[in-house]
Every structure is written in structure tokens, then in C-alpha cells.
Design a protein around this nucleic acid. Sequence first.
RNA 1: GCGCCCGUAGCUCAAACGGAUAGAGCACCGGCCUUCUAAGCCGGUGGUUGCAGGUUCGAAUCCUGCCGGGCGCGCCA
Length: 585
Amino acid sequence: MKELIERLVAQALAALPAEDRGSLDDLHPEVERSRDPAHGDFACSIALRLARAARTNPRALAARIVAALPPNPFIARTEIAGPGFINFFVTTAAWQQQIARVLETGAAYGCSDAGAGRRAIVEFVSANPTGPLHVGHGRHAAFGASLASLLEATGWSVHREYYVNDAGRQMDILAASVWLRYLELCGERVEFPVNGYRGEYLRPIAADLQARHGAALRRPADQVFADLPPDEPAGGDRERHIDAVIARMRELLGAADFRTVFDRGLEDILADIRDDLGGFGVRFDRWYSERGLADHGAIDRALARLREHGHVYEQDGALWFRATAFGDEKDRVVVRENGQSTYFASDIAYHLEKRERGFDLLLDVLGADHHGYVARVRAGLIAMGEPGESLEVRLVQFVALFRGGTKVQMSTRSGEFVTLRELRAEVGDDAARFFYVMRSNDQHLDFDLELARARSNDNPVYYVQYAHARVASVLRQAAGRGQPFDAAVGLAALGRLGEPAELALMSEIARWPEVLGQAAALRAPHAVVHYLRELATAFHACYNALPFLVEDPALRNARLALIVALQQVVRNALGLLGVTAPETM
RNA sequence: GCGCCCGUAGCUCAAACGGAUAGAGCACCGGCCUUCUAAGCCGGUGGUUGCAGGUUCGAAUCCUGCCGGGCGCGCCA
């Protein structure tokens, strides 16, 4: 409906003399839902906007636009109100035909081709494979997955990717940690480094290693720790100590066996993450290896591009990228004095590689603590001759868990409730997916565990799912009475729908394409959650106000068509959020 | 110190590009089940949008300055 009115206004504008259109020819006729029913169903403020540029009276301009409006059977009337708003009153038939449209288009109702087939790569989660996902990653997963679905539903070609940080020091520390746990299993006495990964999850991985390789990777503990710089508890430095442990491990095992341990840790943890996310309904098209980046020469290509464009220089033995020339606050090292490329070099290489793969939109979902990284990577892209706007970053704020009124402390040490897996087990996947995207991604999220698991009317997930199940229940009742829903009869009798509660529900149903389009454009899955609540409210109100299973077959099937349409929209919207739509509750 | 994000009802949060009287949920108060699931509905109380200025027909939204909270400022990853 909104789209229709926008088209009508656009046509009216095109018919106006140039001086009325002002200089803003590209101005989109912005039609929005009226807040106040007295202002009609839709309102357009175009006259107010144009009046400034055209230096005319907005109300007079509005009158000229209205006069130029092509007649349309779905527009009952228009009026000019306030400073120059054009209010549109829609006919009942306009709402009714939306119901027919829902039944015709089904799962596609609400979808659009706004993205025009452009290719987007959505990178999200990308947590280091050094341990299980925690509740913060869960929010990234839920947000990223919903965002990807939103884009797909609005005509984008979407590729979902997880960047696996399988290189670098953190992974070496993981390998050393796995190995030390393995040595313990073999019977060695190990003083576990303060800076190692101390989580219990490494023990099964060490056991896996032992099952596969027996004692082949065992080395005496005194050899391992002989003459190492002391760890922190012994008055030393934790960083130097762990690095020395890693170096010793390499020395004692040799490159090949070091890699064996390293890969065991990486693969086991990655398998766990994959399984966790899969169970959470979050899937990726590709798990992109950071190591592969270097292997395929992507880093070299990126550096070559920077050189070509003359944006690097040498200083203090290192190679620097002139980031300041592209809006960053300081220049960045890309190749260290020791010849190794930096993490930043990998980052820009990865993003260049995304462009090489043909993506128009590089959408990164990152933790809020990574905001400093955005300007840098964009600078890199521009310097390499790629459009800076192709990179779009959405930051996800932190999650605080609450049980009842009290905050759940989330330190790794306390061993309390930290993993996504535990959260899923406690509240269920539906509630978790829903709650994670309930708030705008740039707001801190207070996740109320008790509310999420509550099987009560306070719980918004149940409230929405219940609307879906309730329709299913009504349909079962109808069938049980020997009067199953007859869509043909219902569609033919849509003209019978006109009660206030029915109109309100039809209007909400008609809003879904608007909500979906806007949620995708604004990258705002939370808008879908808010809509779902309002939609469910309109349905529950209708349920209480009117009986559906009435004697008159025409009216009965018309009402059933209405609630079947409602059910379809609830299913479509929940589906985008990765939440199930149950038949019974 | 510099930079980014945030500050809206008692609580948790909405409000695209500046639009009409700032909206929901929870909590609180009062009603509605012999009838399709009360996991529901209806009504009510509740606001100087952190503070002070500015821009204009119009500001929660844009600009400036302050106050409060979070995060970032490595040849770490």
C-alpha cells in the first residue's frame, strides 16, 4: 500500500511544473504510516520539504500535488492538514486485497527485489578458535544471521562467512596449552602457564590427541621447562614465559609434530563451534582460513597494490601504510621489522580478496571494541583502489546476563554460565535467537534469563509464537467440526471483513512489506521483533473481539482467510529471525 | 589527552531521511473466561527525551559546550 501511494505521489510530482518541484528532483516521495487515525492511514510530507526549495506556501503546494494525483480505487480520499501534510484515507477494499495477496504469495509475502541481485558478503562471529563461543558471540550469531536473512529477503545475493583466525600467536598459545594438557594425561607433572588457555574444554582435546597418537608426542617435563624464563607467579613475565614454552615446544616436537598438535586443537574447537552454531540455526557458506589468505598470496597482492599506488614507505626497518592520507588517525605497519606481515595486513588483504570475489557490499559484524578498526580497513581499501563505501561495519554491543534482578558475573575463572551452549540449554534456541535481536545492535543488551525461559505471557517469544499456534488451533477446531477452511470461499468473501478489529489486523498485515524493507535497509532486525509484537497484539485483540467459527460459511471463511494470512506473516517474520513457528503450545 | 558509541516513563527499550499530541512491554491500579488455548483481551496512572545554548515553519533526531556511562587509541591478535 505504501508503495502504491508513493508511486501515485511520484506521478503527481512529475506532472507539476518545474518550479514547484524545486531543485530536488531526486527527492523520494516519503510516505509514512499516520500515527493518529484522524490523520488517515498514510501521510506524506513532501510538500513541506519541497516548499522550502521552491519558496512557496506548503499548503498551496500540497493542494497542487493532490490535484495532480491520479485517481485510484484504493484511495478513499485525501486531505491537506496541518502545515501541509497530505493525508491518505485508504478504502476497506485496499486492506482486503492485501489478505488475498498474502495467501497467494505465501512465504514470499513481504519480500522485495530492492537489493536488485547485488552481491553482499556478511562476515560475522569470526571468533578466534581458541575456545567455545560465549554469550557475546551468540548475539553476533543471531544478529548476523538475521541480517543476512533480511538482505536475502529483499533481493540481495548473500554469502555468509566466518573468518577463522587460524594463524598467529593466540593459536600458538592454544597449541601449547593443548600439548601441556596432553603431557599431563601422559603422566608428566606440568606447571600450567598463567597465560595459557586454562579452560576445562582443552582436556577432551588432549585426550583426543592421546587417543590418536599415544605417547608419540610425549616429552619429559623437565626438558620442556628447563631454563625457561620464569612465569608470573615465580616473579617473571607471563608473556615471555608462554612465548618461551611455545618456542621450546617447536624445538622438542619439530615443525611437523607441532603442526599436528596445533591442528588437533584448531579442528576440535572449530568442530565444536560449528556444531554449536548449527544447533543455533546459524550456518555459513564458507569458513575462511586466515592461513589460506597467506597461502594463496592474497597478502602479497594487497601489499603490491599499496606499493603500486605509492601508499607505503619504509621506516625503522618496517613497511608502513600511509593510512593518514585516507582519514585514519595514524599510519600503520604492514610488514614488521622481522619480516612478518601484521594482522592489519591480513585484514586489508582479506577485504581486498572479498572484492576480488565480486562482492559489492562487504558487511562486517564486529564487536563494539573493534570500532577503531573500521577507519583503518576502509583506508586500506581506498588506497588499494577499491570503493570505501563497499565496506559497511555494524558494531554489536556487549551482553549482560541477568538472572532475576541480579547480574550474572561472567568471568572465565568463576566458571559461571559463560558459553553460548549453556545459554541455549537453559532458555532454548527460540528464546535465545529472539532475545538477542530484541534490542538494537548498538545498544547494550540486558538478557534476562528468567524472562527468556518463562512460559508466561510476560515472555515476548511466547506471546508471538502463541499467536501462530492459536491460529493452528482454530483451524483444527474448524476441521474437527467438519468445516475446514476453504480458501476459495474465504477469498471470495473478503468483502465481509470490516469490523474495527479486523481492519486493524489487516492494516498490520499490510505493514509487513514496509517493515521488512525498512529493517533490511537500516540493518535493524530488532524492528522485526517490535513488529511481531504489534502484529500479535492485533491478532489477539481480534481473537477476543470476534468469533471466527461462525455458522455463515462466507463470513467464517473470510475470517479464517484473515487469520491464515496473519499466521503466514508471523511465520515469515519469525523465520527471518531463526525462530520456529509452532502449531501447538 | 584524543577519537567512536550511548543517555528517552520507576525498569527494559522503540521512534529511517528533522514532521502533526514522543510510543510499546514490564511494574502498579481497575475490569473480562458456561462459548474457537486467559500462554489472551479492555481501561487507567506514569515524560522538562542527561544539562545549557544554537539552527528553523517544526528538534529525541542536526550544530556547539558541559555532565554521566561504555569502548578504542601496539611492529598484539
